[in-house]
């Protein structure tokens, strides 16, 4: 008698909608959508119990391409919108999908405070080191000498280091992935979603249109040579001294997730009036 493995309850395609992406052929974000759908299928989460929240940018178009509840908000504000949703509805799985401009430039302040607040969210930034939707301007992670119409000869600015900033601000889980490694990214996303508190996953996701040089990333990325640490100082030192292409889970913390104060038993609003009575 042969034993047949139980058929998986969910397929990756259950998480993908019929809306056709606006992304360019070859964009790394297609792979991120694929990784995400595989991760969610493996976790067997019900699509209706997942919310995908985003801001503005190429990568932020992703909610409509999933078959989950989605919110495509304004530029840079996906994190607070997602935090409000998660605090109001803690039983939902809330994913925040962003890009390097949305997440680190216009939304930079929210990034710091989302790490501090440690609401149980998974924050995925598809980093292509360029503003793609507006056709090729330097972002906070762009190299200082990258030439563009808006900043001829380069910005001359030091690139932002999101992983280290996340650590310094209190993120509870920090990882770097490469979009071309679909299964590796899916594995990391599963861990990130499962990890309590604020999980930050930076996915190097090439923009083949405005940054054709990023096609080379597939030859540069490599798995991190060491296991993740729970020591943020050690993790920060490793990340600051690596070549920028180490992938995998780099830090796993154990801070308690954000918990809003709660009454043991909610009372009728009428009790609030007593202190006003003369």
């Amino acid at each position: 008698m042969s034993v047949t493995a139980e058929a998986p309850k969910r397929k990756a395609s259950d998480y993908i909608s019929d809306v056709k992406p606006v992304w360019c052929p070859g964009c790394g974000d297609y792979h991120v959508l694929l990784s995400l759908s595989r991760a969610l299928a493996q976790m067997e989460l019900e699509p209706e119990n997942i919310a995908v929240v985003s801001g503005i940018g190429c990568s932020s178009r992703i909610p409509a391409y999933t078959n989950c509840y989605g919110f495509h908000g304004v530029h840079g504000r996906a994190l607070p919108l997602a935090a409000g949703l998660k605090v109001a509805r803690p039983e939902l799985t809330v994913l925040v999908m962003s890009g390097d401009g949305d997440g680190f430039s216009i939304g930079g302040n929210h990034f710091l405070h989302a790490c501090r607040r440690n609401v149980d969210l998974t924050y995925v930034v598809m980093d292509n080191r360029v503003y793609g939707l507006t056709k090729g301007q330097p972002s906070p992670t762009t190299e200082p000498d990258w030439d563009s119409a808006l900043s001829p000869g380069g910005t001359g600015l030091r690139p932002f280091h999101p992983l280290v900033i996340a650590l310094a601000s209190g993120a509870n889980f920090v990882a770097r992935c490469f979009s071309g490694d679909v299964n590796g990214t899916a594995r990391v996303l599963i861990e990130a979603i499962r990890h309590p508190g604020f999980s930050f996953v930076e996915i190097l996701s090439p923009c083949v249109t405005f940054r054709p040089d990023e096609k080379q990333w597939k030859t540069l990325v490599h798995p991190a040579p060491v296991d993740p640490t729970d020591d943020p100082a050690r993790a920060a030192r490793r990340i600051m001294t690596d070549d920028g292409f180490n992938t995998g889970i780099l830090y796993r913390g154990n801070r308690s997730p954000y918990r809003a104060p709660a009454a043991s038993e909610p009372q009728d609003p009428g009790v609030l009036e007593r202190k006003f009575v003369i």
């Binding site: 304004v74 607070p80 009372q267």
Partner: peptide, 24 residues
């Protein structure tokens, strides 16, 4: 009364948090 108030980092965040909660 069984509700929640969250202190936000700025007004951009506070209104977006409210939108997120109401979406929920």
């Amino acid at each position: 009364v069984g509700g929640t108030l969250v202190q936000a980092e700025d007004e951009l965040a506070s209104i977006n948090m409210a939108i997120g909660a109401s979406f929920g």
